[in-house]
């Protein structure tokens, strides 16, 4: 069991780096969906205090439904509607710095774990740094990507990180809380999808750099 859990954690970390290096939006959407699946798997693998298997199964099902199937479908649809699907992303050296900063964040997370005794008690080995690194990778994606869709993906990844951090602390009652959070995010992404549609209609591009022209 521990080995499977560790493999899942390593896959999570690798997925983060793959997302930071990926050039185009399509593979990144696929990676986010893969991360959702990992999340569901981790939920069932991580030992929790007072866990209720039924609730966990329910939550995992919801995650699969929303994160593995729902979001990617929605994002793909938006992608095609905006007309970016065939378009490869801008070439740039940004990925180099994204990966390096991702590495630095991971080192920081690993260091933080050695400094936080409670983290070692609550979380299985490597879980805390992996979750924190996921959160950071999401933020790096939000900061580093110029396309609005890329930022939505970053936001989703960051949210995954937060979800992971709270996972071992989940009590019976908190399952419902998590579910409602999931719905919240769903609505948020939905709204963003619509917003991006409008942005692309107005600016003929979803390059957020163009927002600069909106200031006074």
């Amino acid at each position: 069991m521990a080995t499977v859990l560790q493999i899942a954690i390593i896959l999570l970390l690798l997925g983060n780096f793959a997302m930071l290096t990926a050039n185009r939006l399509e593979p990144r959407i696929r990676l986010v969906s893969f991360q959702g699946a990992l999340l569901a798997a981790l939920l069932l693998l991580v030992p929790q205090q007072g866990a209720n298997l039924m609730h966990n199964l329910l939550l995992a099902g919801a995650i699969v439904l929303i994160k593995v199937i729902g979001f990617p479908l929605l994002l793909h649809r938006t992608l095609h509607k905006v007309g970016l699907a065939s378009h490869s992303a801008v070439r740039g050296s940004g990925h180099k710095y994204a990966v390096i900063s991702g590495m630095c964040c991971l080192i920081f997370a690993l260091w933080l774990e050695t400094r936080l005794p409670f983290a070692q008690e609550i979380y299985p080995p490597l879980f805390f740094p992996a979750a924190l690194a996921t959160l950071f990778s999401g933020l790096i994606m939000v900061v580093g990507r110029m396309r609005a869709l890329g930022q939505v993906l970053g936001y989703l990844v960051a949210e995954n990180g937060i979800f992971l951090l709270s996972m071992p602390l989940m009590m019976e009652s908190s399952t419902w809380f998590e579910l409602s959070l999931l719905l919240d995010v769903f609505v948020a992404v939905f709204v963003m999808g619509i917003a991006i549609n409008y942005i692309s209609e107005t600016f003929e591009s979803i390059d957020v750099g163009r927002f600069c022209s909106l200031r006074d």
Partner: peptide
């Protein structure tokens, strides 16, 4: 990328 992967493996091994 290979270097980054190896660095990842090293870090995880060390902790």
């Amino acid at each position: 990328g290979a270097g980054a992967l190896a660095a990842l493996a090293l870090m995880l091994t060390l902790i």
